[in-house]
Simulated assay, not measured.
Amino acid sequence: MNASDRTPADLLRSALATDPARPLVTFYDDATGERVELSAVTLANWVSKTANLLQGDLAAGPGDRLALLLPAHWQSAVWLLACSSVGVAVEIGGDPADADLVVTGPDSLDAARACRGERVALALRPLGGRFPQPPEGFVDYAVEVPSQGDRFAPFAPVDPAGVALVVAGGELTAAGLVEQARADAEALGLTAGSRLLSGLSYDTWEGLSAGLFAPLAAGASVVLCRNVAELGAEGLEKRVESERVTHRAL
């Protein structure tokens, strides 16, 4: 990655410029059998569309706080990078009542209703499918995002010194997040081309780093596994082989 990268969105742009076709995030849900593989260009397209939704339709901007009530999932990775593109701070599992807007999965809709700002709901269905019945009081992400623009330009420059992430009570600026992700990548032994399989949740920095930010900082890729315990030891080893995994975080 480039030494000049100072935000997570910068890291994604560098990945896109280096090798747009390579798999960047491969997601499994071992409770449902879902598998989704996103190349750098596909992930960047989702991020651009989501950032346009966030900045345009939801009127979010630098300094706003978004409560993210989502599990480790490829769409969670999209929202994390879209918020970085706009300059919105993400609070993992944050209190919706204290947030400017909330993004939630189907299991936390009731809690998310406490947000007095914009509310976005994700069905987390295979292939990014929509809710069969849209939840009242929420924007259905899968309905709104496809029509958004494929290119994104922020209305205001993103400040690398601004808060980008709040997780487990700790805050990271955009630049601090990139610095920590690089340090974690080095500690894990990740280099360009590495494939890290992560079964960690997204409710800690360790899970977020292994499941997205450290591989992105290293020019590596992640195999993100939700409900990986369902696989069993033999199934896990088969996945490691089939996905050409070089590192693990479980």
Score class of each variant (00 low, 15 high):
residue 127 L to N: 13
residue 139 V to R: 13
residue 104 T to F: 01
residue 69 L to M: 14
residue 122 L to N: 04
residue 68 L to W: 04
residue 70 L to C: 09
residue 133 Q to V: 12
residue 95 D to W: 05
residue 100 D to Y: 04
residue 96 P to H: 02
residue 80 L to E: 13
residue 135 P to F: 01
residue 112 A to V: 01
residue 102 V to F: 05
residue 88 V to A: 05
residue 85 S to K: 13
residue 131 F to D: 07
residue 139 V to K: 06
residue 63 G to N: 14
residue 109 L to D: 11
residue 81 L to Q: 08
residue 106 P to K: 04
residue 69 L to E: 07
residue 130 R to V: 00
residue 120 V to D: 07
residue 64 D to P: 09
residue 95 D to R: 08
residue 139 V to I: 14
residue 79 W to A: 02
residue 72 A to I: 12
residue 67 A to R: 02
residue 114 A to R: 15
residue 122 L to C: 03
residue 131 F to I: 06
residue 124 L to N: 07
residue 75 Q to M: 14
residue 111 A to P: 00
residue 140 D to Y: 03
residue 103 V to N: 05
residue 100 D to T: 12
residue 90 V to Q: 05
residue 143 V to M: 08
residue 126 P to T: 04
residue 112 A to E: 00
residue 126 P to L: 07
residue 71 P to E: 12
residue 98 D to Y: 01
residue 117 G to Q: 10
residue 76 S to W: 05
residue 123 A to M: 05
residue 123 A to C: 06
residue 137 G to Q: 10
residue 122 L to H: 00
residue 142 A to H: 04
residue 143 V to T: 14
residue 108 S to I: 03
residue 80 L to M: 13
residue 137 G to S: 13
residue 91 E to F: 02
residue 66 L to V: 13
residue 103 V to L: 11
residue 114 A to T: 10
residue 77 A to R: 15
residue 134 P to Y: 03
residue 126 P to K: 12
residue 139 V to Y: 06
residue 71 P to C: 10
residue 116 R to C: 06
residue 92 I to M: 15
residue 101 L to H: 12
residue 64 D to C: 14
residue 66 L to K: 06
residue 79 W to H: 15
residue 136 E to I: 07
residue 92 I to E: 10
residue 114 A to V: 00
residue 69 L to T: 04
residue 63 G to I: 11
residue 97 A to K: 03
residue 124 L to V: 02
residue 127 L to F: 13
residue 69 L to I: 07
residue 100 D to N: 14
residue 74 W to R: 15
residue 129 G to L: 03
residue 111 A to D: 12
residue 139 V to H: 13
residue 75 Q to R: 15
residue 77 A to G: 09
residue 138 F to C: 07
residue 124 L to R: 02
residue 108 S to N: 12
residue 102 V to D: 05
residue 75 Q to F: 06
residue 92 I to N: 08
residue 128 G to S: 08
residue 139 V to L: 15
residue 74 W to N: 13
residue 84 S to H: 08
residue 62 P to C: 10
residue 136 E to F: 01
residue 99 A to V: 07
residue 133 Q to N: 09
residue 117 G to T: 10
residue 92 I to P: 09
residue 109 L to I: 06
residue 137 G to P: 09
residue 130 R to E: 12
residue 124 L to Q: 08
residue 65 R to A: 05
residue 119 R to H: 09
residue 62 P to G: 15
residue 117 G to N: 11
residue 98 D to V: 02
residue 73 H to S: 14
residue 88 V to R: 08
residue 118 E to P: 04
residue 85 S to T: 06
residue 135 P to W: 04
residue 113 R to D: 01
residue 130 R to P: 12
residue 140 D to Q: 03
residue 105 G to C: 09
residue 114 A to S: 14
residue 86 V to P: 13
residue 144 E to W: 06
residue 140 D to T: 04
residue 104 T to A: 13
residue 90 V to K: 10
residue 107 D to L: 14
residue 135 P to E: 09
residue 127 L to C: 12
residue 84 S to K: 10
residue 87 G to H: 09
residue 113 R to Y: 00
residue 110 D to K: 13
residue 144 E to Y: 00
residue 100 D to Q: 12
residue 87 G to E: 09
residue 102 V to Y: 06
residue 138 F to L: 10
residue 118 E to H: 13
residue 138 F to R: 11
residue 143 V to Y: 10
residue 104 T to W: 04
residue 117 G to P: 10
residue 127 L to E: 15
residue 82 A to Y: 01
residue 86 V to C: 11
residue 116 R to A: 12
residue 112 A to I: 02
